[in-house]
């Protein structure tokens, strides 16, 4: 494969890399940038473990090729935590509501939740489920994840009110 140069931002940091055009964003994150929080569960777009935001849209790093990253702003789980690496309000809500078991799906769910709340998502259970519908969890049965999202919305609204 021919090589290309691409420049993009990850968690507000600039990168320029040279790579083959169909190399997966997932491999770029994990192998080149050593950002290990984005997980590979299936590699085919099914499970959502590799969810990130690209220019604000929820996207799957396992099926996003390098060629499409030019000029893009990428947000990963590492960019969600508070500055000191402490859990953000969404992440804390997940902890408090028991939304985490094995944790392998968790970064993906946190990203999907972040996107949902950023877009002004409401407490409506069906809407929440639609927003998380591309993410699989085999441990929790989803109930506590939905609780976590609802709790995060409450905390988000509290923050906004202040």
């Amino acid at each position: 494969m021919n090589k290309i140069k691409v420049s993009f931002k990850v968690n507000n940091k600039d990168y320029e890399i040279e790579t083959t055009p169909l190399r997966r964003l997932l491999d770029i994150l994990r192998e080149d940038l050593k950002l290990m929080g984005t997980k590979e569960g299936c590699g085919e777009g099914e499970c959502g473990a590799c969810s990130v935001l690209i220019d604000g849209e929820l996207s799957l790093a396992c099926i996003t090729p390098a060629t499409q990253l030019e000029g893009k702003e990428i947000l990963t789980i590492e960019g969600i935590s508070d500055k000191d690496g402490e859990p953000s309000y969404i992440q804390k809500a997940f902890i408090d509501k028991g939304a985490v078991q094995c944790g392998f799906c968790t970064p993906g769910f946190v990203m999907a939740t972040h996107k949902y709340i950023k877009d002004g998502g409401s407490n409506d259970e069906t809407k929440i489920k639609e927003a998380l519908s591309g993410n699989f969890c085999r441990c929790t049965g989803y109930a506590k994840i939905v609780d976590g999202v609802k709790e995060a919305i409450v905390r988000h609204n509290d923050k906004e009110a202040k």
Partner: peptide, 12 residues
């Protein structure tokens, strides 16, 4: 359009 994959797929 809401039935195409899940929300992750729909974003792409």
């Amino acid at each position: 359009s809401k039935l195409i994959g899940g929300y992750t797929i729909q974003g792409m």
